[in-house]
Amino acid sequence: MNGTRMFQSAPAVLVASVALCLPVLAPDFMLFEFSIAVSYGIAILGLNLLLGFSGQICLAQGALFGIGAYTTAIFNVNFGMDPIVTLPFAAIVTSLIGVLIGLPALRLQGLQLAIVTFGVASAFPQLLLKMDSITGGVTGLAIDQPMAPRWFPGSQELWLYGLSLICAAASVFMLSRLLRGDTGRLLRALRDNPLVAESLGVNLTKGRLAAFAASSALAGLGGGLFCILNGFISPQSFLPMKSIDILIGGIVGGITSMAGAFIGAVFIVFVPGWTTAINPALGGLIYGLCLIAMMMVARQGIAGLPIGRGLQALKHLFNKKGLSRVSGAVPGQLGGE
């Protein structure tokens, strides 16, 4: 059993090791791109929680991401707070708004929830423009970028990358704590069979709202980090397509996998650039085909690819011992449980 666990957590181990080796291998501007990917990854983590673990489709993740970013910016510009200190506030404010969105969600079924939340995502940039006294409207907001402290040996990019990794680690830690306990079981019950759960006395309302709150907090944290990394935000960065990108990132990475969230984030940050680099005229076409092909090859996302099982099969080749295994994902499995 121990061996199986190890192989099941293969994606997580892979992601973690790549993340740590990156500063050595990648030049500064690539570290910047990876930091951006990490910030998206945290938001996708929130989506995984909501969609993968609790079965609720929320297409407003991009708008919540934007709320986190703007909270950080507004706190920094209006109250002079250090951007890093604003991050918890960004998470909390976004969490509250997420619960507000979750309230009508209690009455809505899957597809309807998706459409209403997509509507929220569509309205978000216009709201930003309308409330221009707070948000700076079209001009956007520029914040003071936190400089690396003097004792730090590396570059500014490395410092920001380290910050991103710390935020990501914190998110993953908090999420796994959340999922391990009662709340986690509650959420899984919510996804797999809400009727049975309710008849057994599970409080689904609390579960749903908790899921929204946690997912939005993560989106807000990611957004705040995004703002810090860029130093400037404007409504143009938070169009409805951003929510769709986050959704794509989540599903391509593996919607029930925490490592998948970050894999998916890397996908949405880097792959569009690669497909355009292959052929500028056909860039969009290739990206569309890429998405389709990805889903045909990796039904459960990249993290769902049997890397673990592949390695295990390799091990069997040497041991020549056959083990009977239940094929397919065990309900409630996540990378690392």
Binding site: L51, L247, I251, A281, G284, L285, Y287, G288, I292, M296
Partner: peptide, 30 residues
């Protein structure tokens, strides 16, 4: 495109249809 993934989960099909969205729009543009 759809038949190969028809046994997969809803999310997979969603991404496939989004892929169609991107593909056909880019095709018209091209």
């Amino acid at each position: 495109v759809i038949k190969p993934v028809s046994k997969a989960s809803t999310e997979t099909v969603v991404v496939v249809t989004l892929g169609l969205f991107v593909f056909f729009q880019a095709l018209c543009l091209w």
